[in-house]
C-alpha cells in the first residue's frame, strides 16, 4: 500500500479504510495528539496512531503488527471498551473541591510555582496508553491504574483544592496507590510525558506527609527510612513484621523457616551497619526542616529530568555485538 512520506499510522489506517476495507474500526478525532482517541498497539507497544511516523519503520523494512490496546475489552478491531477506564477516572472525583460555595468577589491568583506542582499531570489526554501494559492492572483488573491515579494527584496537588486528606484516604484503599508494582510501563508508554508512576510516588509522599500511612505499603516504605537511619542498610528480617504486623508475620513462620534454612533470613544481630551512618540520620533531620517534603521532593527534580534526551546514552547501541536471539522476537506484550 502506498502512502506519502509524512504519513503517520493514523493516515495509513485511513487509507486502508478508504481503499481496502471500509469495515476497519478504530477511533480518531483531532489527528494532533490532543484528543486521546487513537490509542492502539504497534508491535505490542501502546501508542497514539497520530503520533507514530511510518517512514522510519518502512525504511527499516519492518512490517509492524497493529492491535488493540491491552487491559481493556476489545469491542471491534482496534476499538476497546473504555468504560472501566472512565469509571476509575470518575472514582477519583476529577473536579476541584475548593472548600467554599460562594463566588469570590476578586480573582484568586494561583502562582506559577504552585501550578508547576501539577504541571505534568495536567498534560494527560486520557488516551489509556499507560493502562494498556500496566502489569498490576493485568494481575488485578480492579487496580485503579496509572491514568486515574495521575488524575488523583492532579487534584491532591492542586493548591486550590481543600479535600486532599479525604482524597488521599480514598487513594490509599485496596486497589489504590500501594497496588502499583513499579513496572514503569506507564511512564514508558505515555505519549504526553505525564509519567504516571511518578505521580503515584508523589501521592505516596503526600500520604506519608499527611499521616495517611495505615496501609502496608506505607509501613513497608517507612521501614526502609528507619533502616537507613539506624544501620544504613535495609533491616531485611524485620521488614515482614514491620509491614504486615506481628500476627501476619507469625502466620508466615513456615515460609520464613524454609528461607532461613537457606540463609535468606539474615539474623538481625549483630546488625550489618554502614560506616558513618550517623551522617544519613543527620541528613534526614536536616532536610526535614527545609520544606521540600511530600510531593515537592519529586517535583524539584522534574526540571532536570525533563532535559533528558532518550538518545543521549542510547548511542552506545551502535557498537553492540550483532546477535539475533531467536529468529524474530515475539512482540512485547507489555
Amino acid at each position: 500500500m502506498d502512502a506519502p512520506e509524512w504519513a503517520c499510522l493514523l493516515d495509513v489506517l485511513d487509507l486502508i479504510k478508504d481503499k481496502h476495507d471500509g469495515t476497519l474500526a478504530y477511533r480518531k478525532s483531532c489527528r494532533m495528539m490532543i484528543c486521546g482517541s487513537c490509542g492502539m498497539r504497534m508491535d505490542g507497544r501502546a501508542v497514539l496512531a497520530c503520533k507514530e511516523r511510518m517512514k522510519p519503520i518502512v525504511d527499516a523494512g519492518h512490517v509492524p503488527v497493529i492491535s488493540a490496546m491491552g487491559n481493556m475489552p476489545v469491542l471491534k478491531d482496534l476499538v476497546v471498551d473504555m468504560s472501566p477506564f472512565w469509571g476509575k477516572i470518575r472514582s477519583v472525583k476529577p473536579w476541584l473541591d475548593p472548600g467554599y460555595d460562594e463566588v469570590a468577589e476578586k480573582e484568586r491568583i494561583v502562582s506559577q510555582q504552585q501550578m508547576n506542582v501539577i504541571h505534568k499531570e495536567a498534560l494527560c489526554i486520557m488516551c489509556g496508553c499507560c493502562v494498556s501494559e500496566c502489569n498490576s492492572m493485568e494481575a488485578d483488573p480492579d487496580f485503579m491504574g496509572p491514568a486515574a491515579l495521575a488524575k488523583g494527584f492532579r487534584f491532591v496537588g492542586d493548591a486550590r483544592d481543600q479535600a486532599d486528606v479525604e482524597r488521599l484516604n480514598t487513594l490509599n484503599e485496596e486497589h489504590g496507590i500501594w497496588d502499583c508494582t513499579r513496572c514503569y510501563f506507564c511512564n514508558e508508554r505515555c505519549p504526553k510525558g505525564v509519567d504516571p508512576r511518578d505521580a503515584i510516588a508523589k501521592l505516596g509522599a503526600e500520604s506519608v506527609k499527611q499521616g495517611v500511612d495505615h496501609d502496608m505499603g506505607a509501613k513497608h516504605a517507612k521501614w526502609f527510612i528507619r533502616s537507613t537511619e539506624t544501620t544504613g542498610w535495609l533491616r531485611e528480617t524485620e521488614l515482614v513484621p514491620k509491614t504486615q504486623g506481628i500476627i501476619e508475620a507469625i502466620k508466615q513462620t513456615g515460609f520464613a523457616l524454609k528461607l532461613a534454612r537457606k540463609g535468606k533470613v539474615p539474623p538481625p544481630f549483630p546488625p550489618h551497619v554502614a560506616a558513618d551512618v550517623k551522617e544519613a540520620r543527620a541528613l534526614r533531620e536536616l532536610v526535614g526542616e527545609q520544606g521540600r517534603d511530600g510531593a515537592l521532593g519529586i517535583v524539584q527534580g522534574e526540571h532536570a529530568l525533563g532535559r533528558i534526551e532518550f538518545t543521549e546514552e542510547a548511542g552506545a547501541r551502535e557498537n553492540a555485538p550483532e546477535i539475533q536471539p531467536g529468529v524474530e522476537p515475539p512482540p512485547a506484550e507489555g
Partner: peptide
C-alpha cells in the same frame, strides 16, 4: 565503606527529598 541503602522505590515514594540526599551521598 560509608554508603547506605539507596532507599529502593520506597524512600523515593515516602520521603523523596531524603531519597535524593541519600543517593547524592
Amino acid at each position: 565503606e560509608s554508603v547506605t541503602c539507596c532507599g529502593a522505590g520506597d524512600i523515593h515514594e515516602a520521603e523523596p527529598d531524603y531519597y535524593l540526599h541519600l543517593n547524592a551521598r
